[in-house]
Design a protein around this nucleic acid. Structure first.
Lengths: 249, 249
DNA sequence: CGGCTCTTTGAATGCCGTCAAATATTGTGG
DNA sequence: CCACAATATTTGACGGCATTCAAAGAGCCG
C-alpha cells in the first residue's frame, strides 16, 4: 500500500479486493503540501482529483469584502475533489489547513472507472453524496443554531468523522485549526468563537487549543449542538449492500 | 412524451436520443400531489426516486423545538431524490410546497442504468453534484450574508433556475411559497422576511405576493445578494462534453 | 529582544428575534 | 352568499445575541 494509509478510509468496506487495488493503481502521484496551500482556485479547469491521505483540507468562498466562509472540510480518507471529475470547475477555492499529504488521480482514469466499473462508480458517487449530506447539515446549523450550537456541532462532526478513520483517542483528536478558521466554518466572528470556547470550557464540555481538541462531555456537547451522527452514514457498508440488492433484483 | 414536460430539464442537452428514451421508459408512474404532502420522512428506507415534472418540492430538517429549516428546494426538471438511490435513507423530510406532479423511478431500474449505461450514470451523478453546489452556495449565504442578502439570494436563485426551464417571463415567475417558507429557507423569522420584503419593494428591487415574484431590478437585486449564477452550471452541456473528452483520451 | 500571529477580554452598537396586536386573505359550513 | 374560523401579512416595541472596535496578554521564531 503505497499511500501508507487506509485508502478510501470508510468506503473501503464496501469495496472488493480488486476494486481497492484498481483505485490504488490509479494514483498518479502522492504529494506533500504545506499549510494554507491553495490546490484549486474558483473557476479553474480541473483535470485531476485529489484524495486526502493525511491532514486537513477546506473549501472556501469569499464575500464581497473578502471575508471567507468555509463551505466544507475534509479529513484523512476523504476523496476531496472527486466531484471535480463531473463538474470540471468549482465555484470555490480548495486549500490545505495544516500540512497535508494527498494522492492525485487523473480524470482519464476516473473516466475509465466510470466506463468499466459500475459498482465502483456507485461507491464513488456515494462518497460525493456524503459530502452533500454534510452540506445539508451545515445549512441546518447555520440557519437554526446559535453560535454555541454551531461551534459545538463543528467539533462534534470532526470528532465523529475522525473517529471513523481511527484518529480519535478517548475524546481527543488533533485539529490544526486556529480560532478564526473555526469561525469561518461556523459563520461567526473569531472574537465570538473565542467567547464561545470559553463558555464550552467553563461548562466542562470541551477544550480546544494548540491544535488539540479534548471532548470532556460528549453527551452534553452533542445536546448543545443538536448533533445526531446519522447524517454521516457511518454504516455505509450496510447501505451499499442494500444497493447491491437492487442491482440483483 | 408521457410526462408532458421536458424530462431532465437542463441535463437533456447532454443526453443522446436513446438515453432520453431510456429514462422515459424507466418511469414507473406519474403522480399528482397536493400541497404540503410529505413524500419521504427522515430515516425511512427509500426504494424509489422522484423526478419533479411540475411544482415545487422542499427538503426540511427540524431543530429540537420543531422549527424547520429548508435545506434544499426543487424546481420542475429536478431529479429530486436521485441521491436516495445510493444513500437509501435521508436525514431529512421531503415534501411538496404547492401542488406538484412527479414521476417515480424504482431503484432497480436505476441500478440497471448504473450497471449498463456509464455515460448516463455520469449525467445522473452530475445532477446530484449540482445539488451539492447549491448547498455550498447556501452555506456561504447563511454564513456571510445578512437577512436582506439571503432573501434576495433566494429569489435570485429561483429566478435563475426557473429561467433554465423556461418558467420565467420577463422577470416574473410563479412561486407558491408563503413568507414563512421563504424564512425557513433563509434562516430568519417570518416577521423579518416580511420587513425585508418591504425594504426590497421600497427600493424598487422586487415584489413578492400571491405566489408571484416580480423582479424589477435584477442587477440591484443580484448585487445585494452577491449573486453569481455560475454555481448553477447552466452551461452544463459544455462541461459534460469536456467530460467526454476525458473518456476518449 | 522585538515582531509576528494568535488568544483573550471589554465596551458600544446594531441586526434580528420575540412578543403582541391589527389587518387582510382564504377556506368552510350553514 | 354570508358568517365565522383559520391562515397570512403587516407593523410596532423591546430585548438579546453577535458584531465591531479596541487593546492587552500569550506564545513563537528569527
Amino acid at each position: 500500500m503505497i499511500t501508507g494509509c487506509f485508502l478510501l478510509g470508510r468506503a473501503r468496506d464496501a469495496m472488493t479486493q480488486e476494486e481497492q487495488q484498481l483505485i490504488e493503481d490509479s494514483i498518479r502521484e502522492v504529494v506533500e503540501l504545506p499549510p494554507r496551500k491553495t490546490l484549486v482556485r474558483a473557476g479553474e479547469r480541473i483535470r485531476t482529483s485529489t484524495y486526502l491521505i493525511d491532514g486537513f483540507i477546506g473549501r472556501y468562498m469569499d464575500d464581497r469584502e473578502g471575508h471567507r466562509q468555509l463551505v466544507a472540510t475534509h479529513v484523512p480518507g476523504d476523496f476531496v475533489d472527486l466531484h471535480g471529475f463531473a463538474l470540471k470547475r468549482f465555484e470555490h477555492d480548495v486549500a490545505t489547513v495544516g500540512r497535508a499529504r494527498v494522492a492525485t488521480f487523473d480524470h482519464e482514469v476516473l473516466a475509465r472507472i466510470n466506463e468499466r466499473h459500475p459498482n465502483l462508480t456507485r461507491i464513488l458517487w456515494f462518497s460525493t453524496l456524503l459530502d452533500a449530506a454534510m452540506h445539508r447539515e451545515w445549512i441546518f446549523r447555520l440557519g437554526r443554531l446559535d453560535a454555541a450550537g454551531r461551534v459545538a456541532a463543528f467539533f462534534c462532526e470532526m470528532e465523529a468523522r475522525l473517529d471513523m478513520v481511527k484518529l480519535v483517542d478517548e475524546g481527543r483528536y488533533a485539529l490544526p485549526f486556529i480560532q478564526t478558521e473555526v469561525a469561518e466554518a461556523c459563520g461567526v466572528t473569531g472574537v465570538h468563537v473565542n467567547r464561545t470556547l470559553k463558555m464550552l470550557r467553563e461548562r466542562g464540555l470541551m477544550t480546544f487549543g494548540d491544535g488539540l481538541v479534548t471532548i470532556h462531555d460528549a453527551v452534553g456537547l452533542r445536546r448543545l449542538a443538536e448533533f445526531d451522527p446519522r447524517y454521516l452514514y457511518a454504516d455505509s457498508s450496510e447501505l451499499m449492500l442494500d444497493a447491491r440488492d437492487d442491482a440483483t433484483t
